[in-house]
């Protein structure tokens, strides 16, 4: 199976690989896995508390080229976006952009999961006024 040029580009020059301080209050961390292939992906965001804008996004993925490309693209897309806008990104957007074949769709799912998990973690730290977020924060504690 041939990878698309965009996948190869992200694979060879992954954007935003790295780590943010997990314990920081402004950082949200998402660690997710794809059971289909055993891949694992960590995506971290740093959110400006005043503007709710994602100022930094870093990832580290262990998996195939498509999984690395999906997470690399995900960090590019969410950087500079407001948290609520980042939540609007769907796996199908990633599939389209990278021209992923059907057998690699789960890689894009993983990237969407990672974005949502990172934002979820950040929201828990802040336990904003939303009742849902408060509930999950308590459930975790």
């Amino acid at each position: 199976m041939a990878y698309s040029n965009k996948v190869i580009d992200h694979y060879n020059n992954p954007r935003n690989v790295g780590t943010l301080d997990k314990s920081s209050n402004d950082v949200g961390t998402g660690l997710v896995g794809a059971p289909e292939c055993g891949d694992v992906m960590r995506l971290q965001i740093k959110v400006n508390p005043d503007t709710q804008v994602i100022e930094e996004a870093k990832f580290k993925t262990f998996g195939c080229g498509s999984a690395i490309a999906s997470s690399s693209l995900a960090t590019e897309w969410i950087k500079g976006k407001k948290v609520e806008d980042a939540l609007a990104i769907k796996n199908t957007d990633i599939v389209k952009e990278l021209s992923l074949p059907p057998v690699k769709i789960h890689c894009s799912v993983l990237a969407e999961d990672a974005i949502r998990a990172a934002i979820g973690d950040w929201k828990k730290k802040h336990a904003t006024a939303e009742p849902v977020a408060v509930e999950t924060a308590q459930a975790k504690a």
């Binding site: 997710v32 059971p35 969407e112 949502r116 998990a117 849902v132």
Partner: peptide
Amino acid sequence: EEQSRTATDEAREQGKEKQQV
């Protein structure tokens, strides 16, 4: 092959956090 995507779609629609498998 589809269990993960299905769970993601459901979580997104309901605005809930996905339970990792």
